[in-house]
Design a protein around this nucleic acid. Structure first.
Length: 258
DNA sequence: ATGCCGTGGAAACCACGA
């Protein structure tokens, strides 16, 4: 079973790239972030024609998350992160697929720091951590994946010294990520590749991709039950080099059946 | 140190992203 996450940065503008990658990569389950489309503008038919069922939570202009599954039922559990009814951003969607709870998330960027956006990021992180604590207690295995907007360690930044005061790398942000992990979650890519430099995002400008000036901010967090099922994982970094690419590359893991 | 690029939406500029 192959599960992927991809911050598409506009699902409609990105549709040809998304469809090309789905055809090439053939993931069974996909979490998408940054749809940047209202609910009724999601390209449902094109996704269906590519062989995927989908649930999504759109939003005009910004945010937006979806879960796709090829030949599998998607049983939606929630389309919002518990803990703040006044938070209207579409940043979380959760479903049961093939006996696994899949949470797809788009954690707030948080810049500039300090300021209200950074406060919102940390608050959102607290809500995610509270929700994750409930999920990890359950019997069903869970995957929490998506764009976390966090580089967990210095290894995950091309030039860490330039990012120390950025919301994606501030001590508070890294501490929140490690606090979440400490519940018992496993960072799947880092688990398989403890010493590799791995990036999932490259800026559009300054030839960041060509210079490999990247960040690792898209992650898979695995429930303890899933760690022994983790067969392989990777980043489809070549997709970042395609014409009209997102600034993120797709990231994926493969799980054995049992 | 920086939004230099890219997307979407509104209105030929602005908000936002990381």
């Amino acid at each position: 079973m192959k599960i992927a996450t991809y911050n598409v940065n506009g699902v409609n503008g990105r549709l040809p790239v998304l469809l090309r990658w789905l055809e090439e990569s053939q993931p069974d389950v996909v979490c998408l972030q940054e749809l940047k489309a209202p609910q009724e503008k999601f390209p449902e038919q094109a996704i269906k024609d590519a062989g995927y069922n989908a649930i999504w939570h759109g939003q005009k202009s910004w945010n937006g998350v979806a879960i796709l599954a090829r030949g599998l039922d998607i049983k939606e559990r929630t389309r919002e992160l518990p803990g703040d009814p006044e938070d209207l951003h579409s940043r979380y969607i959760e479903a049961e697929v093939n006996g696994i709870i899949v949470g797809g998330l788009y954690l707030p960027n948080g810049n500039p720091t300090p300021g209200p956006k950074f406060e919102y990021k940390l608050k959102w992180f607290e809500r995610l951590t509270a929700h994750a604590a409930e999920l990890i207690k359950g019997d069903m295995p869970v995957i929490l994946t998506g764009d976390y907007n966090v580089m967990p360690t210095e290894m995950d930044v091309y030039k860490p010294e330039r990012w120390v005061n950025d919301a994606l790398f501030r001590p508070e942000t890294r501490a929140a990520f490690h606090n979440l992990l400490s519940q018992g979650w496993t960072d799947a890519l880092r688990h398989l590749y403890p010493d590799e430099v791995i990036y999932t995002f490259w800026d559009y400008f300054r030839n960041a991709y060509e210079r490999n000036a990247g960040l690792r901010i898209d992650h898979f967090l695995l429930h303890p039950k899933l760690v022994k099922r983790l067969k392989s994982a990777g980043v489809d970094r070549h997709v970042r080099g395609w014409e009209k690419s997102s600034d993120h590359a797709p990231v994926w893991i493969e799980l054995s059946k049992k």
